[in-house]
């Protein structure tokens, strides 16, 4: 049984041909190659945060998600893997990048295999992966892979970047395959997020699925 895998690329790149988006997509391609070599297929879904900038700000203010923002959240929520890519602004990820993760539910990324990627004008910012991106995604309980990629302007002129991309992509692809094997036994039409991975379980939480029965609510306050 072939499980259809999806890989979400969340990119905070701003320009029309953004190196951040290129980096995210290249990692996704490399992961895809690994998955294809194993006879499976992965859908790559790119979420351009630039297009959601207004919607994300509105949601901060009103809590109302526009259709486009909700679709993006749902894409990440049901994905089998995530590539999170941001340009480096003032020694950290950009504000837009953080805004997206600010409106996502606390449990949305739990056990989600994730690669962090960042771009910057100078190689001296390469620790942004470890000082900014990892703590954020670890807080959200994502499974952040040990390998990430920081690409400075000068890296784009060297073959070495593609070698690093391939290496990161391969390890993400391997994680995706491991996850799909874990759920290959389940044939029911249960929601995607319920797919069991070996040794871990990703559940998409529904606010209404485990509302305590009122008697136990009463008992918990001792009335």
């Amino acid at each position: 049984m072939t499980d259809r895998l999806t890989l979400a690329v969340v990119t905070a790149g701003l320009s029309e041909d953004s190196t951040t988006t290129r980096l995210g997509e290249a990692i996704a391609q490399a992961a895809s190659t690994t998955v294809e070599n194993a006879g499976q297929h992965v859908d790559i879904q790119v979420i351009q945060l630039r297009d959601l900038a207004h919607g994300l700000t509105d949601m901060m203010i009103t809590h109302v998600a526009s259709r486009a923002v909700q679709d993006a959240i749902d894409t990440v929520l049901t994905a089998d893997g995530l590539i999170a890519a941001s340009p480096t602004y003032k020694a950290s990820y950009s504000g837009l990048f953080k805004q997206f993760f600010d409106v996502i539910d606390e449990s949305a990324l739990e056990n989600l295999p994730t690669v962090v990627a960042a771009t910057g004008g100078s190689p001296r910012h390469s620790l942004v992966l470890d000082t900014a991106m990892r703590p954020l995604l670890s807080y959200l309980k994502a499974l952040v892979l040990p390998l990430g990629i920081y690409a400075a302007s000068e890296d784009w002129g060297h073959n070495d970047l593609q070698r690093r991309i391939d290496r990161v992509g391969a390890s993400l692809g391997t994680m995706l395959l491991a996850g799909s094997q874990g759920s290959a036994g389940s044939t029911d039409g249960a929601s995607h997020g319920d797919a069991a991975r070996p040794g871990l379980r990703r559940e998409v939480k529904d606010d209404f699925s485990d509302v305590p029965d009122f008697a136990s609510l009463l008992a918990s306050v001792g009335s």
């Binding site: 009103t62 305590p212 008697a215």
Partner: peptide, 30 residues
């Protein structure tokens, strides 16, 4: 948005009111 409150309203046989202003209708519906 807190499901404990409609649960409470239902438990006592009281009414449930949704302000229906700040959220999309899917929330009210749920």
């Amino acid at each position: 948005r807190s499901p404990e409150i409609p649960e409470q309203a239902a438990f006592y046989g009281d009414g449930f009111f949704h302000n229906n202003i700040f959220w999309n209708k899917e929330h009210t519906e749920r």
